[in-house]
Simulated scan of single mutants.
Amino acid sequence: MTDYDVLRVFCGPNGGYGNELGVVREGSVLPERADRQELARKLGFSETVFVDDPERGVIDIYTPTLRLPFAGYPCVGAAWLLDVPELVTPAGIVGARQDGEFSWIEARAEWAPPRVLRQYATAAEVEALDVPGPGEWIYAWAWEDEAAGRVRARAFPGRDDGIEEDEATGAAALLLTHRLGRALNIIQGRGSQLLTAPQPHGWIEVGGRVRLER
């Protein structure tokens, strides 16, 4: 089996929760897309990152079933692991910075895959939702405290690859921030935390805590 690291991205304040991310630091060992896709399928993470140039921050991102030009939590995790000022993805150049316990990326909403952003009246309604079957990729959310920008969210990929709920989803947070036009403090899934902040000229920052699992 190819060597890889496991990170936990968008952890809660106590270091728990977050979404597991596989990172193959030596992407050159699997240069072919088909081989990368097969490894991503075997590992079974929501996303797996292959690092093609650690100094320049060139990365390649896969779900268990497809290659992605951009994804939020893989970029936050890779930025933390590589400690570089930017990442090079097929979608474009992703800015990166470290700020205390948080790792941040700067990206554009149009890079994110389509998501259905479905608002509910209360956080309790979001927490009570059953996992839907395969279909649309749904980001269910509600205000916990609108004045403070606090959001409760859950993500349902609607895929048939065994991932019924995504614990922490940077791309969806990017889209929600773009729609609302304001900074957000999102608690997603069981307790993951994502922070966002609109920037000039259509850029949006997404940040969170990252831990090395193994």
Results as ranks from 00 to 15, higher is better:
G16S: 06
I187G: 12
R67P: 10
A171G: 13
A140I: 00
E55Q: 13
E32H: 14
D60L: 11
E144G: 02
D83Y: 02
E164S: 15
E86I: 08
E38A: 15
R190D: 10
D52M: 14
A107L: 02
I93D: 11
A155H: 11
G162H: 03
S192I: 05
C75P: 03
A107C: 07
T196R: 10
A107G: 04
H201E: 15
V151I: 14
S103L: 00
A34W: 13
G189R: 05
C75I: 07
R190N: 10
P64I: 12
L87S: 03
P200V: 02
G208T: 07
C75S: 09
T169E: 04
F10M: 01
E20I: 06
R67T: 11
L30W: 12
L30N: 11
E136Q: 14
A121F: 06
E205Y: 08
P64K: 06
E20K: 07
R214W: 09
E32D: 15
A112I: 09
G22Q: 07
A197W: 00
P64H: 08
S103E: 00
E165N: 13
R33Y: 06
V116I: 14
Q98Y: 01
A171M: 14
R56Y: 09
V29F: 11
A173L: 03
V6G: 05
G191L: 02
L39G: 10
E106H: 12
W137T: 12
K42D: 14
E106Q: 14
V24L: 10
G149C: 08
L39D: 13
P114A: 14
Q98R: 07
G100V: 05
R152K: 15
T48V: 10
P31G: 04
R159E: 15
A153Y: 11
P90A: 06
N185W: 13
G191F: 02
A112T: 09
K42T: 13
V88H: 15
E146Y: 00
V88P: 07
R36I: 10
E144T: 05
A79D: 08
G77P: 11
A142L: 06
E125P: 09
V206F: 02
G95R: 03
G170K: 12
S103Q: 05
P157I: 10
G72Y: 01
V58Y: 13
N14A: 09
Q193M: 09
A96Q: 13
